[in-house]
Amino acid sequence: MTQDNGPPDLSHLQKRIAAVREREEARTRPDPAKRAMTSGYGMALRLAIEMVAALGVSVFLGYWIDKELEMAPLFMIVFLILGMGAGFINVYRTVTGLTHGSLRGPGDYQRDADKHGGPGGE
């Protein structure tokens, strides 16, 4: 009897483990990085760092190119403007699609629309 009881008990346990695991996966799947960043403080810090890093890197790059080519402020200004764009894109991706592990998130059609609308404003 105990011999017979063993396997069904285990399979029952297996089923329960599978069910729990499935529920856990369904709970965690949507966006793990975003879930980790649920606190507003964390999100704010993250976006701020994204923006600061973008500007810092691009200005440094522009400054370095300027120094190499001796074209004083030209590339720094160009890279500053590009860096703002890159920073906004990174912030946008952090907020929307990036957490799904894809650069093209749910908000991409909106982004494409924005890009199509872009030249009109320029």
Binding site: V52, A54, S58, L61, L82, G85, A86, G87, I89, N90
Partner: peptide, 18 residues
């Protein structure tokens, strides 16, 4: 393309900075 390249180059910096 320059913006995308920049945004790619920024990723390690923001990763480390964070």
């Amino acid at each position: 393309i320059p913006i995308e390249v920049l945004s790619y180059l920024i990723r390690p910096v923001s990763l480390g900075l964070r």
